[in-house]
Nucleic acid binder design. Structure first.
Lengths: 235, 235
DNA sequence: CGCGCCCTTGACCAGACTCAATATTAGTGG
DNA sequence: CCACTAATATTGAGTCTGGTCAAGGGCGCG
């Protein structure tokens, strides 16, 4: 889930300082200091080992971060949604490549500007904490889940508010949801630590079991959300 | 590598604000506000889903963070060294369990105190950025590396300053290094996304190839560091 | 010395990978 | 709008890496 949505969703108010972080953030973003940039699918924002001079906020669209091994093996390490920050490095160089999956809009931020404001630093800290939690989840997925569980977890990840601890269950009669993947099978495979064939087979198996329908390749109609949720390994 | 060592090691000075972050941090740690706690192996600092009221700094020793699936599968998501912060959550609850691997000392910090200081927030941001980078590396390991490559990468991780981009190579004549694992085979397996048998077999294979010698179970003498480095998949 | 824990090794098995063929989709130009 | 092409996805057959199950070995500690 994107950072902004989560901020809105859960009640961490007792941790909030008196100042309104989001207002500080909004003020900064509204100032003259930020440039915007629009991206088309497969546009690269920065490459692994480029000098890490700037950081970015994803305004709209989807971006993936990936790393490569010398022999060409690829691991997609993050899939970002709007509100997420990226390109903030500890070291001197970017540790991964940032590539747009869809049309996207980003804001170019200045590390120095952010560093000197308490409100902005708080925002950054929150965003990074949220990312750490999803990296932990992803480590569990990559290290311990079967192919089927990985694909099911991936699908659940695209459905806001479902599969969480306080999942409200099916909204109405039908437990359906349509999602757009905006990733090719190869990209999904590289995100889930699988091969393209295994991803394809898992999706076909879900189709066979009547849990999903493929509308048009990167668009899936989930016919039984709870059914998918059951095979994520987490229930 | 632990955060503090990295701060010392690399030259990110152009990103540093005028104020000396480490001094701010030291002042805070020296104040009345922090309690200390000592841990024995297998002592638990907090459990997954406990209410996340405090955060911690590891002063000395080693701590691991892990997550469990309902059926008992475990994934160790982080192995911490001195200087690392942990227990800083975005959500309301801890997303993993923190358990000491060795005798350890930790400092109990107050989230509110840290949130209101720019200097401390900067320190936290740095620490989290460093962790994100190692999570990215670990995702690559879990998603794309073979068992042998994972074990070799794990061993290299224990040797400071080797295997990095600017690795100085063997220091003298002999390319040796002795390391203490302070983890059982099971814990290593859960960290690397393998089974205990596969870890054991990989280590035996390295022994057979003459790259390492087992001194006493959790103590390994690496006889050819560069040889290990060659099989991490990164060269 | 003996018990318990952890580690190692072997034999076998299964899930995921590889390679290869085919099918489907999306994009292009007539 | 359709035919053609290139890119992407699916499916099948066979292989292999790593998992499972089971037995045995080593070490520390009482």
């Amino acid at each position: 889930m994107a950072y902004r949505e989560r901020v809105a969703a859960d009640g961490l108010n007792d941790h909030r300082p008196d100042m309104d972080i989001d207002q500080v953030w909004a003020d900064y973003l509204g100032s003259e200091k930020t440039k915007r940039q629009t991206l088309k699918p497969h546009d690269v924002v920065f490459y692994e080992s480029d000098s890490a001079n700037r950081l970015y906020e994803l305004v709209s669209g989807t971006i993936m971060l990936y790393k490569l091994l010398p022999d060409g093996r690829r691991q997609v390490v993050e899939v970002l949604n709007s509100g997420d920050l990226f390109g903030l490095q500890y070291g001197e160089y970017y540790d991964c490549t940032a590539e747009a999956l869809t049309n996207a809009e980003i804001r170019v931020l200045n590390r120095r500007d952010i560093e000197v404001s308490l409100g902005l630093q708080q925002h950054v800290g929150r965003c990074l904490s949220a990312k750490m939690e999803s990296m932990h989840d992803h480590a569990m997925l990559l290290g311990r889940k079967s192919a089927m569980e990985r694909v099911a977890s991936f699908i659940m990840r695209m459905i806001p508010d479902r599969g969480t601890l306080d999942c409200p269950g099916p909204a109405g009669e039908r437990d359906e949801k349509e999602i757009e993947l905006s990733m090719t099978r190869q990209e999904i495979a590289d995100y889930l630590g699988l091969t393209i064939e295994t991803v394809s087979r898992s999706i076909s198996e879900l189709k066979r079991r009547g849990l999903i329908k493929i509308e048009k390749q990167d668009c899936i109609l989930i016919t039984r959300v709870c059914g998918i949720c059951q095979i994520t390994g987490m229930h």
